[in-house]
Design a protein around this nucleic acid. Structure first.
Lengths: 206, 206, 206, 206
DNA sequence: TTTTAATCGAGACGGTACGTCGAGTCTTGAC
DNA sequence: GTCAAGACTCGACGTACCGTCTCGATTAAAA
């Protein structure tokens, strides 16, 4: 009797060799030829894998890349909090700038954000697990409510929004991490906490 | 004598009819089927124009779309400065949110920013004339150096960076234009103006 | 162990359905629209086959047509030798005339000969296997060296050369198969073999 | 009264410079790139002439080529009759072989014959004036009815048919002009002259 | 002299086939 | 049931040439 007592599936098991070959091939090809010219066909050939094997496990090149790079991206953006709020923010923003401007994982990340604009499936993946947003959330949470007096998601936007914009519009003159950190820290100080701020925004305090 | 008195060019002149038909076709198709599924072939057919005629004047679908939508985008984002700084910023940010979230021109804009990540030619176009960045510059300049005490380009990033990030990562809970405006106005107040801020930014004032 | 016991090839085998659909489509279209207007695109569409599938196996429309019609052409020109030399030649020439003037395979043949003038690849195909030349060779060989006293290839030219010329220059008044056969038989009787022949070639020795 | 006394037409007269430039360009390009790759566009550009100017006077590339090469072809094939029948035939066949195998005009001629298979307009041109057929007719007529005892058109086919076949099927071993001439002379000697001949097809009354 | 009209060059126009490429699917035999 | 291999249908790619059209500029006969 062909009963199945465990959840083990019949047939040949998935090849771990094929899986990692595909992910590494995607990674390498992204660096070599860029996202636009990357194709499923090329990934399969580089990986020495049948085309159907790629399609069996991933629906699009974006999904392959997502799985290939998200872990690396998260690692590059992870932070070890010291006690000093400003120093932590400065260190984080420096990491973000390197990530977006130079890193291979950053290139993949930008490509995935771009792809998410066109493809809802990719957008879902990124919404579920976005290494940049997630790392920014971790920083904001670590700063605590004394430093961050606006809602956390809003603070995340203030923290990395300018970085992302500059990365996507490759501006010439960029602000340093220190200046950005200072601007961020001023922005997240809620006016509601300080009654003199409320009415006359834009003024200089005496 | 084959003299050329004026700068008139030889040959049949470019058809204005064909030009505008292509631009309108690109516009319409973007709304109907989205950027990813948009093809040069479809643009030409919709416009009732030969394929070569499209390629003669534009190298890629991104270039067509750029010419088709930049003017509209700039118009949607244009501002009429009142005297009130905060009110101007709020009004501008509301326009930006509508632009990025709902407008057809905004959809085209996001697609172009995404395309610029893959294609250097598109990146060059956008660097030369980016309707969102340009309109933000206009706002920052109008605010004046009393309100904006950081370099203009940096202020632009602070102004629209969070908006762009939210638009590209379609976050659920978004801050209102008022909150964003206040955060921006706090952020652009330079620490250098206030000697107590300079060294120990990130601290809470007593 | 990835042993290869037989010469079985990996991958999906070639579709016989696609192959014969292409050949029949080429055949039909040639009759309907002629060789000049025949396109690879039309062949593929008529065959209900992807364009790439045609290009995978044939480089040009001429190659498709060659494979599609050579067999039919050879069949139309095949002969069943009787003992009578003149009767065999007359019967053969009648078949040739019908083939060149009326037959679909003959139309394809003429098109291929014309194409071979422009395209060396087609010329190679035809040199390797030309149904008209081959059938003429068969006749000449069957006649034997008593009847044909000139080199075989020369006799072939004498046998079908006039037919081909008339077919290619669509002359009005054509000679009958009997007259052509007689002229051929006179022409292939070499003077060198029989010193008495020199002046009165075409006669039968008593 | 706008009467037209002469056949002179109003307006700018046809440019002889343009006409000959087109014909020479077609000639040159045929030699350089071959008939298949020859295009109206290339002819016009090489001639330094507007495209419309070519189309105004010739409908197809075949017509251009016909006008460009027919005169040269006729000149290459023209013969100066001596008294000796066999010598004249040998000399003519040698000229034909050179023409078909080596000459530029011969290459054009073969291309035109090939084109006539696909295009009825070209076929009409060639039927009206075919330099090879015409020259062969001249030879046959010059030989006289003592030598040529079959209908003239039939003799023409016997004279150049084998040459054309060999040229179109680029055979390896070719007969010499002498052998061909002898075979031709045997072939055109009518059986009717000799009462012992087989059936008396196509006979002349005594 | 002025007008008229056909030609010239140039080059953009709407079409359409080219041959290639990638998409995603399907069909083998081997594991 | 997964694997490598590779053929399948489909359709967009960007290019080339088709034959037509619209320009301004010539050119010579007609008015």
């Amino acid at each position: 009797m062909p009963e199945r007592t465990t959840t083990t599936k019949a047939g040949r098991p998935r090849s771990e060799r094929a899986r990692s070959a595909v992910l590494h091939a995607a990674d390498d090809l992204l660096v070599e030829i860029g996202y636009a010219d990357l194709t499923m066909k090329a990934i399969a050939e580089r990986a020495g894998v049948g085309r159907q094997t790629v399609y069996r496990w991933w629906a699009t090149k974006a999904e392959v890349l997502f799985e290939a790079t998200t872990y690396d991206a998260a690692k590059e953006l992870a932070s070890e909090p010291s006690g000093d709020a400003r120093a932590d923010v400065v260190a984080y923003l420096e990491r973000v700038e390197v990530f977006l401007a130079c890193s291979d994982a950053g290139a993949a990340y930008k490509a995935l954000v771009a792809a998410a604009q066109q493809d809802a499936a990719v957008a879902d993946l990124m919404r579920a697990s976005d290494p940049l947003i997630d790392s920014a959330h971790a920083i904001v949470d670590a700063l605590g409510q004394d430093t961050v007096q606006v809602p956390a998601r809003q603070a995340v936007s203030l923290l990395v929004g300018p970085e992302v914009l500059d990365a996507f519009t490759d501006v010439g003159e960029r602000a340093g991490a220190g200046e950005r950190a200072d601007a961020f820290l001023r922005a997240v100080r809620s006016p509601a906490q300080d009654p003199t701020e409320t009415l006359r925004s834009g003024e200089q305090p005496p």
